[in-house]
Nucleic acid binder design. Structure first.
Lengths: 210, 210
DNA sequence: GAGAATAGTGACAGCCGCTGACAATTGACA
DNA sequence: TGTCAATTGTCAGCGGCTGTCACTATTCTC
């Protein structure tokens, strides 16, 4: 279906991601040099930087895939849902597809451990947060479009999406550090955290929420 | 009150921050080299890296000051406030003090323009987001402590603070790019965004919120 | 199916951020 | 004033990243 050239490119790209993940997870991100990655794939360093803008990029390639899929999944939702329900439903719907897509490039277990490396490595965490912010802005634009609002003037889409993504982030961090390394667990934690959002904003925390 | 040595250190540090800000704002962050900064202050490059862990650090020094002051101000709040009210009140209380503290190092106008540079420069935005996350975690710990909750097991403090900080971030970005360059305006925007949080989470957006 | 157009790669040189090590200088304090 | 400790400058060097150019591999065209 696709040309030989294209397939070759895809293969080196995937190989770079896989090799990088293995090295990052075993040695740590900072301790791994780009040269080590390229040596293990047998390409030149220059080639690496033709596939990835920088060293962070290869570490966050799968996270980026997540963002793209999530955004696409949002398009498919029916228009009569309330905004918050749309986000929640998109989460549920895109979750398992995502696992399969990841597995085609690196084993899921490796991906999970990479997630922890990201949380623990300042440079990666920073880049990851910025990437999440890009997704957030896309989501806000789409939510506004669906609701027929102008995303520039009406703050509600941005505010809602910001809160939603923030909670997703907290859940992700909690899961990466303390949960068990399964996708289902991650989804469960995330859903639970999102359900805590509205109650947490209310004045009194008298009842148990742990 | 303090020794000569201490004062000298403070002065070089402030001079570095000021020089860096001027260069970043006029030339852009990436286009400015550390050598340019140190030349304009007449210290060696090595000295620069003894004051700042990296180039990003000097650009975010004032943002860091903000975070520290905000966190300290949280301590002073009465314990009988609801968590959300505490955060809101801390915001109001610490705002103007902050302007004064900044002005001692760089002119407020320069600081405002630096804020825009941060939003526009990927590397700086990333570092800024990570720094904000550190503040977020501190705040969550303190909110949990005040409420007598275990921050590990109870998600509510983290969720509340995450949502609050996320909205503050959206407001800050909106103000930096589109608002006028005054502190009062920034506070006004931020307050307004926070007031939109709870309504934005509700199901229907029928009423006008712009 | 041969040759032209194009895409992808490797090799090399070089800038810049950042660090370790050691020597030189400067302020603190008796 | 002399000693000690803190601060700084100098130098060498690593690693991330980029521009350039020649070379190779594929796709396209006739």
């Amino acid at each position: 279906m696709t040309g030989l050239r294209e397939r070759k490119k895809q293969r080196t790209r995937d190989a770079l991601i896989l090799a990088a993940h293995e090295l990052f997870v075993t040695q740590g991100y900072e301790a791994t040099t780009v040269d080590q990655i390229t040596e293990s794939v047998e390409v030149s360093q220059r080639t690496f930087f033709r596939y990835f803008a920088n060293k962070e990029d290869v570490a966050l390639a799968l996270q980026k895939m997540f963002a793209e899929r999530f955004f696409e999944a949002l398009h498919g939702r029916p228009l009569d849902e309330a905004p918050m329900d749309t986000l929640r439903a998109t989460l549920d719907a895109s979750w398992s597809d995502l696992g399969a897509a990841v597995e085609e490039i690196v084993p899921l277990d490796l991906h999970m451990r990479m997630w922890q490396v990201i949380e623990v490595t300042p440079a990666l965490l920073a880049a990851h947060l910025r990437q999440s912010l890009v997704l957030e802005e896309q989501l806000a634009g789409e939510i506004a479009r669906r609701a027929g609002l102008d995303p520039e003037s009406d703050p509600r889409p941005r505010v809602l999406v910001a809160a939603f993504c923030a909670v997703m982030g907290v859940a992700g961090r909690h899961w990466a550090m303390r949960g068990n390394a399964s996708l289902e667990e991650a989804l469960k934690v995330t859903r639970s955290y999102i359900d805590h959002l509205t109650p947490a904003l209310s004045a009194n925390w008298g009842d148990g929420g742990a």
